[in-house]
C-alpha cells in the first residue's frame, strides 16, 4: 500500500491545526497514522513585541524522520511537498518565478544542512 506524508486536520471550526503525518494512503484522514512527524499551524501570527506587523507561521518537524520517509518512498501531498521543500528536503514543485525560486532553494538548502 502507498505510504503518504500528508496533513491531518485537527483544531476547531475556523481554527485549523494540522498534524503532519505518515499514513497509508487509503486510511481516513484523522485515523491513527504510522507516525506523527510534526505539526503545521496555518494561521499566520505576529510576534508580541514586534510592531512591524510581520507575520509568521509555526511549523514543527522532525527533519530526520521526514528525510527517512522520503528516502523509503513515501509520497508527500502537495502542501507537505511545499513545506518540505522549504527546509530543503525536496526540490520545490511549483516555482512562482525562476529568480525567487533559485534564491529560495539555495537559502533553504543552505539552512537545511545546519
Amino acid at each position: 500500500m502507498v505510504v503518504k506524508i500528508r496533513l491531518a486536520r485537527f483544531g476547531r471550526t475556523n481554527s485549523p491545526f494540522y498534524n503532519i503525518v505518515v499514513a497509508h494512503a487509503r486510511t481516513a484522514r484523522n485515523s491513527r497514522p504510522l507516525e506523527v512527524i510534526g505539526t503545521y499551524d496555518p494561521i499566520p501570527k505576529k510576534d508580541t513585541y514586534d510592531e512591524s506587523g510581520k507575520l509568521h507561521k509555526d511549523i514543527k518537524l522532525d527533519v530526520t524522520r521526514a528525510r527517512y520517509w522520503i528516502g523509503v518512498g513515501a509520497q508527500p501531498s502537495d502542501t507537505v511537498w511545499r513545506l518540505l521543500s522549504l527546509v530543503g528536503i525536496l526540490q520545490p514543485k511549483y516555482r512562482p518565478s525562476a529568480k525567487t525560486a533559485t534564491t529560495e532553494t539555495t537559502t533553504a538548502a543552505g539552512a537545511g544542512q545546519g
Partner: peptide, 28 residues
Amino acid sequence: SGRFEFRFEKINVDSSGKDGRSRRGVGW
C-alpha cells in the same frame, strides 16, 4: 518566503513515547 516567515522547529518523534500517547509528544 515573501508573505510569511516560516519557522520550522526541530522536534523528535520519540518524544511521544513508546505508545505514542505521551503528553510530551508533538501534535494533536
